[in-house]
Amino acid sequence: MPGTKKLLLIGGMPLLLLGSWFLPGWLGFLLTIALAKGLVVLGLLLLMRAGLVSFGQGLYYCLGAYTVGALGQYLETSNVLLLLPAALTAGLGVATLLGLLICRYRDIFFAMLSMAFSMILYGVLVKTMTFGSSDGFNVAPPSLFGWAPANDNGPLLTLWLALIITFIAALFVWRYLRSPMGYAAEAVRENEIRVEYLGRSVQRIIYTKYLLAAGHIDPEMAYWTTSGEFVFIALVGGTSHVAAPLLGAILFELLRTYAFEISPYTWQMILGISLLGIILFLPQGVWSLVERYQARLKSS
């Protein structure tokens, strides 16, 4: 990474955090959700680089959320420095276990098996009355040792956290993709032979294990449609750059919000047509537009 770019990145962060203060609440909320989803998709991107698509990524999303929710309820804490590592550990534990089993699979079978596990979690949660069954329950807004910054539109800490964690995770993934390991993943896809390493790749996904953002959690997070949404986002964004899933997630959330607004009765159709349009005309995802633009800049 050239020095100036790095500087820009590091300098941009506080600016962005500051700027978030002035965002209208709905956009801040939408961004938080989009970043949380982008983070999940970032994990998905790693898998897709290795030629694997998971239709069960919702499992980790849901697991992280419930870890945070359950701890918040039983320990009555909202301290992110406690909740996040806990969610991470839970995700890591399950991912390691499942990774051992799942890493033998590929293609559709990988997708379907991961979906099956996610659906089993869904089934368990729906049966768990202490967690409110399918209604779920509310989670207190997070704090940092009791400190919870807010503006008129609601708490800001979640958005900041989402920004910082996404940033760190993206940086990490970016480095990773350029490491020998990362190239190995490309190689895996190229000749479709699984390498033991895949188990480890699954572990990377645990970076996505958190969702303090929504304030409300329910088992639907582990339902297959949620996982499908992540794959949707991955394709919208593209997999060629770490920023692509984030861009994809933000675009997806905006698209859906406006589809709801423009056509409350037929918003699914708008989503479907956009999806088909992107697959047809931008097979590398929206990020390819950015790449094209960059290429033009370079050539001129």
């Binding site: 009765y265 037929t266 918003w267 699914q268 159709m269 989503l271 479907g272 047509i273 999806l275 088909l276 697959i279």
Partner: peptide, 8 residues
């Protein structure tokens, strides 16, 4: 995508 469209 087709499913979404057909649903509507």
């Amino acid at each position: 995508g087709l499913l979404l469209i057909l649903e509507d």
